[in-house]
């Protein structure tokens, strides 16, 4: 019994050390966000006091330089709208290609699966050209790009779930006189709820944090949060590390709140995504 206690304490100590390793960087950024920019490079791990403490200056300067609030607005709008439309359109597509058997739907299915493994670098140049040609280089048009690029994984996961639904339910609805539209929205869609939550979480994490696509398509006029933060680096000038620290804190706060509120769903979603993807 005594031996077990000792090993428990050792394990607990190791876990505490690792937890400190995880939390330490976040804490350093938080502390430095109240420090003058020169002190960030000379004494990054000390508590800001005296000359080093600058109050909210970094925050006000950072907000002015990055336009953080509008970046937050664009990020939020693009993420929410894209995820909602991905869920609606890909669940419909997945139901169609799963229920209608044929060479065309087979090709569509394999093209969607193939798109999952293609890295963004393959299409980034031509995609941003097309976005420009079709005037999709704005906060509304980019949603179409996200739906198209996210369609692969979402349809694949929906279709995997739909394959397991017994046909009898849909047939019964149709015999009762429901058309495909009613059948889909009243019988099939409600059953897709848990898969939809998983897809929503995976896509939210992707789109919210995505840097390259918004940078290449809408970055010059509309900055999302990752683009706004990288923009602080500027051309050749030195980075204002004070403003950077403050913006990093502001960028992390919504993510951490979202995580603490939806933790269970997030971990479940990530698990399901890892196993199926």
């Amino acid at each position: 019994m005594k031996k077990k206690n000792i090993s428990t304490y050792i394990l607990l100590l190791l876990m505490l050390i690792f937890a400190a390793f995880v939390l330490f960087p976040i804490l350093v950024v938080l502390i430095n966000s109240f420090k003058g920019r020169l002190f960030i490079s000379s004494e990054p791990f000390s508590i800001p006091k005296g000359d080093a403490f600058v109050g909210m200056t970094n925050y006000t300067e950072g907000l002015a330089k990055t336009g953080f609030f509008s970046a937050f607005g664009y990020s939020l709008w693009i993420t929410v709208a894209s995820v909602a439309i991905i869920l609606l359109l890909t669940s419909m597509l997945a139901w169609y290609i799963t229920r209608v058997k044929g060479i065309v739907t087979q090709i569509i299915y394999y093209a969607l699966v193939f798109s999952m493994i293609v890295p963004f670098q393959m299409v980034m140049f031509t995609m941003s050209k097309i976005a420009n040609m079709l005037s999709l280089d704005n906060p509304v048009g980019i949603i179409i790009l996200y739906v198209g690029f996210g369609a692969g994984m979402a349809s694949f996961m929906f279709s995997g779930f739909i394959k397991g639904i017994p046909l009898a339910l849909e047939e019964a609805a149709m015999i009762d006189g429901a058309g495909p539209v009613t059948t889909f929205f009243q019988v099939v869609l409600p059953m897709l709820k848990s898969t939809a939550v998983t897809i929503a979480i995976l896509n939210t994490m992707w789109i919210w944090n995505d840097y390259l696509m918004p940078y290449l398509t809408i970055g010059t006029n509309y900055r999302t949060i990752p683009v706004a933060i990288q923009y602080l680096r500027g051309g050749y000038g030195a980075v204002d590390m004070g403003a950077m620290m403050a913006m990093l804190v502001l960028a992390m706060v919504p993510v951490i709140i979202f995580y603490l509120v939806c933790q269970k769903h997030i971990i479940k979603g990530v698990l399901a995504g890892a196993v199926k993807g």
Binding site: L89, L93, Y96, I97, I108, F125, T126, A131, V147, F149
Partner: peptide, 27 residues
């Protein structure tokens, strides 16, 4: 059942497919 769904290609499959063509297949 399959036949009646098949007629609804434009409603169910086309919107997502257009996005897929624009942002993946053509690029």
């Amino acid at each position: 059942m399959e036949k009646s769904i098949k007629k609804y290609f434009a409603l169910f499959a086309l919107p997502a497919l257009i996005c897929f063509l624009i942002s993946f297949v053509i690029p």
